[in-house]
Simulated assay, not measured.
Amino acid sequence: MNLRQIELLRAVVRCETTVRAAQELGLSQPAVSNAIKHLESQIGFPLFERVNNRLFPTAEARSLYKDSEPIFALHAAFEGKVQDIKENRAGHIRIIATPPLGYGVLPSALRNYLAKRPKVRVSFDVRRFEHVIESVENGTAELGFVMGLDDDRGLACETFFTGDMVCVMRPDHPLAAKPTITPEDLRDVPYIALEQGTRMGTIVRNAFAQAGAPFRFSVEVRYCNTACVLVESGVGVAVVDPLSPVFSGHYDLAIRPFSPASEVRASAVRSRKRPISRAAEAFLREVRLVAAETATKLAAPELSARYSTSKCHP
């Protein structure tokens, strides 16, 4: 099975009809239909079940589709590199981050970076943790930025910020009068939880378990940024990473330390197989500077956070 055949298979799986697959590939419908039949004859087993002019992929076809994802991710990265060379850009870096960093530290670092290097082009995306790690692994992103990395996943990583989770609430909320918030304080108030199974969600649940307090919530969300929006709207209070409420300047929130202290780290990840470019290294330096400035802000009397830079491996 060659790359063109795999591309055709993937198009038909996505589109479910040869007509739409043909439109996507710029081919005629008979050409796609004949190609699928030829492919099935060549490999010796059916790839689709045909029902009412629609094609339903077999388990084998779905498995091939899933396993072909890395191939086309690498192909997309290669095409992107060719385009960069063709356009003779002064520099081009591809970065990707999870929401707490993508909506916080990175925009500030990117502003400073581009002010000094206006000819550099940046591809920037904000995705879920798993997608960030995958993009760095397969080369579609040069640098990834994540919160709560608990292992290096075979990647080179640098922790550029370490702090403790904080509790956020509206300034007029009764809990805003307390210097520190504990799980027991959250027992009888509407609470916005971070989704179970996520890294931030697990950190907070462990803190409740450590304090021996019941974990109850009114609303569950995936991202700390979403929790901050709901808190400002008066839905309840939340425990989030220390960066999200600080960088979301439009939020009118009271921020208080959360006890027991629940540490969270912000890390930059890169492939061990490919050295990052000079342009990417320069951007990483800007990220470190913004993180250091943020740590100073978080060291104010009403907040406690710790900052450090370290390598995951010596």
Rank of each mutant, 00 (worst) to 15 (best):
I6S: 00
L9K: 03
L9C: 02
V13R: 00
R20F: 08
A22D: 03
A31I: 04
N34E: 05
H38M: 07
E40P: 00
I43T: 02
P46D: 07
P46L: 13
F48G: 00
E49Q: 14
V51R: 15
F56E: 06
P57I: 12
E60F: 13
R62C: 09
S68Q: 01
E69D: 06
E69C: 05
P70V: 03
A77L: 08
I85T: 05
A90K: 15
I93C: 10
R94K: 15
R94G: 01
I95D: 01
I96V: 08
I96D: 00
I96R: 02
V105S: 05
P107R: 00
S108R: 11
S108Y: 13
N112L: 14
Y113I: 01
K119Q: 13
F124K: 03
F129T: 09
F129P: 06
H131Y: 15
N138M: 11
F145G: 00
F145S: 01
V146G: 00
L149S: 06
D150Q: 13
F160K: 02
V166A: 01
M169A: 01
A176Y: 04
A176H: 03
K178L: 15
P183K: 04
L194P: 02
T198G: 01
R199I: 11
V204S: 06
A207F: 08
F208W: 08
F208H: 05
V221P: 01
Y223F: 13
G236A: 02
V240N: 00
S244F: 08
P245N: 05
F247S: 02
S248K: 14
P257Y: 08
P260F: 08
A268S: 09
A268K: 07
R270M: 15
R272I: 08
F283S: 01
R288D: 11
A295E: 09
T296M: 10
T296L: 12
K297C: 07
L303E: 03
